[in-house]
Each structure stands twice: as structure tokens, then as C-alpha cells.
């Protein structure tokens, strides 16, 4: 403790202690509240999109399927191509889902667009680019390329049109056709409809994963997601 020359610091140490206790208290309170909010947002019951969305919206919105039509469970993933957590999902979680559940015919994976906007200014353009690749039958390859190489374009000062075009060339797409699609408003209505569908389903962040309409509580935690899929499969 401080001696005579330094003055009595006890009150100051008490102040520091109060600050620590207040900070820890706020963090704990915040976490408890956050847990409640997360549990409140996460659908405890399946979402019936067909019943809640406008019929026209349902017609306009369309995800991209991967896996057998006869698969027992449907896993729908709403992503924003400029979202780092979606890049993590695409490079670390998705390959495991495909290997364990899609290729074995157990589930059907559906990619949906949910460009968040805000600071993710190129998310919408990227979603359209992926749909332009889908026109040539290479959606999943392009989807993976966009997310795996996200850092190469997500922080670009100018719209990364040329980068997107180079990915199309890398994947062997018809460049002229792809460029024509990207440099138009093609698929803007589709991406918008998918976004609106996500909003109606209660999507507020990405990636958001629905397993037979039930929202996953841990899309980027493989152990959690795998357990949820297995539960839906009755395993």
C-alpha cells in the first residue's frame, strides 16, 4: 500500500474494484440478456414459409438445391457473400455437411441469398454473380470461389466486377455470357425475393440455417449443427 508520501490510495483501489465489479456485472447481464434474445429469436418450431410469405414472393424466390430430391431433410442456408462468418461456414462447415449428409442422400442443401447491406456493399452484386454462374450450371463452384476468396474482393475500393469476371474465367464459364449477365440487372429480382423471404422467416444475420424449417442455434459450430441435423433425421 502507499506510504505517507504517496498519500492514501485505499479509496482509489476501492474505485478500481467498483469499476471491475461493474464491468463484470454488465458483461454477465449482457450475456444473460443475449442468451434470452437468441433463444427468443431462434425458432423453436419449424417455419412454414409457404404459409407466411406472399404467394408471389414464394414464386419469385428460389434457392439453389444440392443433393437428392428424395432426401428426407431440407437444410436451407441464408448467406451473404461478403459476410466473413459465411466464408467460414462455406470453407469449414459446408464441406462436412456435403460429405456426411448430402453425398449420402440424407439431406438436400439449399443456398439462399441474404445480402445484409450496410457495410457489406458488394454482397448483392456477389449474389447476382453467383446466379449468373448458375445460368451456366456452375453455381456451387462459383459460390465456393466467392466465399473462399472473399478477402480478395470484399474490401475493394471499387465494385469488384473484374474480380468476379476473372473467377468466371477460372471456372471455365463463357466469359461473354457471364459478363453480359453481371453487367445487367439480371437476377436482381430473384436475389431481392430471396432476401425478402429470409426476412419473413426471421433471418437477421448470416449464416442462418434452417433444418426442415427449424433454425439452427449454432450454424458455425459443427458439433451443434451436426447434432441438429441428426436429430432431424431421427438418428
Amino acid at each position: 500500500m502507499a506510504g505517507k508520501r504517496g498519500g492514501n490510495l485505499n479509496w482509489f483501489y476501492l474505485l478500481l474494484t467498483v469499476v471491475v465489479l461493474t464491468g463484470v456485472g454488465l458483461m454477465v447481464y449482457g450475456q444473460v440478456g443475449r442468451g434470452k434474445t437468441r433463444a427468443g429469436k431462434a425458432s423453436m418450431a419449424p417455419v412454414n414459409l409457404a404459409a407466411m410469405a406472399e404467394p408471389d414472393l414464394i414464386k419469385a424466390a428460389r434457392g439453389v438445391n444440392r443433393g437428392a430430391e428424395s432426401a428426407r431433410v431440407e437444410v436451407m442456408v441464408f448467406s451473404d457473400y461478403q459476410c466473413p462468418a459465411c466464408a467460414y461456414f462455406a470453407t469449414n462447415i459446408e464441406p462436412q455437411i456435403v460429405k456426411e449428409f448430402v453425398e449420402t442422400g440424407k439431406i438436400r442443401l439449399i443456398a439462399q441469398d441474404f445480402p445484409l447491406g450496410g457495410s457489406h456493399i458488394y454482397g448483392f452484386l456477389a449474389a447476382r454473380a453467383a446466379r449468373c454462374a448458375e445460368d451456366q450450371g456452375k453455381f456451387w463452384e462459383y459460390h465456393h470461389q466467392l466465399l473462399a476468396l472473399q478477402n480478395a474482393w470484399a474490401y475493394s475500393r471499387v465494385p469488384p466486377v473484374e474480380t468476379f469476371q476473372s473467377y468466371a474465367v477460372d471456372l471455365g464459364l463463357d466469359a461473354a455470357k457471364f459478363n453480359g449477365c453481371l453487367n445487367s440487372d439480371a437476377h436482381a429480382d430473384l436475389v431481392t425475393a430471396n432476401y425478402q423471404l429470409g426476412q419473413q422467416a426471421g433471418v437477421t444475420g448470416t449464416p442462418t440455417v434452417f433444418i426442415d424449417g427449424r433454425q439452427s442455434l449454432g450454424p458455425n459450430d459443427w458439433d451443434v449443427l451436426k447434432a441438429e441435423i441428426e436429430r432431424a433425421l431421427g438418428l
Binding site: 450475456q31 459476410c83 437477421t204
Partner: peptide
């Protein structure tokens, strides 16, 4: 502190950049 996902908040974007 929970699942890492992107929202409209900037902290996720900054933290995962």
C-alpha cells in the same frame, strides 16, 4: 460469447476482417 455470425452491426465485420 456465442455463435459468430454477421449481423448489420459493424463489430462482426471489423472483428472478422
Amino acid at each position: 460469447l456465442g455463435a459468430i455470425i454477421c449481423g448489420t452491426g459493424g463489430c462482426e465485420t471489423v472483428q472478422q476482417s
